[in-house]
Nucleic acid binder design. Structure first.
Lengths: 120, 120
DNA sequence: CTGCACCTTCGAGTGCACTTCAAGTCAAGC
DNA sequence: GCTTGACTTGAAGTGCACTCGAAGGTGCAG
């Protein structure tokens, strides 16, 4: 019914090692197994992995992602808390983007200095 | 003539441990010592630390910062190469910012979904 | 039915960027 | 002169997020 860990790895961009690790730490709960005991990833699993990856690349720690995953597992009653987590994270990402912009301006300035140096 | 490691720590925002570590790995060359062998940071040292911090917070690895520092130590002949390093880094930072923006849009979308859920 | 690739689990190992420790030195205040 | 506290060094330790290895199970091509 689902796809193998190999295919899930290709689709998600995460290594098979990482997929197993994410399951182990509780980021992705109870991936189904086929008759031979092999993992079988469903479409919802893949969508969840995709969202996890976005949280991850925006700098959320594995520990916090675990807390979010745990809330999600507990069902709709935790929706407000999950929303607050995402909102807090959103603020951190905005700050990070602003900081990167500032630092980039300094780097750009340095690059300009080098150009000026090379021309003279 | 210069300031103590404690003061340099306060000014730079780096811990005294990190300042010693940066010197050890060659990021900041030959910080002056006072009569008692204690580190004495000069204004140029602090400016360099400040720039290093910007490279660091924009995601440059210690190893690459070391290469940059080494080129800088070798003098003006390496200016073009340093400029190229900064230009390459600049591209990576721009990509990173773009990626963060994209991922943030998805997070915003999720937050909206939660708001909608809570209202209904 | 045998070889082979790929799967399983569990635990140990890796790389990065610090961070802490241990042992000793030094300067200032009492 | 002695204590106190900040400094010095080199080496070892930490936390995070993977990443790999060992030992064994499974399924399909030849």
């Amino acid at each position: 019914m689902g796809i193998t860990i190999q295919e899930a790895s290709r689709v998600s961009g995460l290594s098979t090692h990482t997929l197993r690790y994410y399951e182990q730490v509780g980021l992705i709960h109870e991936v189904g197994r086929d008759t031979g005991g092999r993992r079988s990833y469903t479409q919802p699993d893949l969508e969840w992995l995709d969202f996890l990856t976005k949280l991850r690349t925006t700098g959320m720690s594995i520990a916090e992602m675990c807390r979010y995953a745990e809330l999600r597992r507990r069902g709709p009653a935790t929706a407000a808390e999950r929303r607050r987590m995402l909102e807090a994270h959103r603020e951190r990402v905005l700050e990070r983007i602003a900081q990167l912009g500032e630092d980039l301006a300094v780097i750009d300035y340095k690059i300009d200095l080098y150009h000026t140096m090379e021309k003279s």
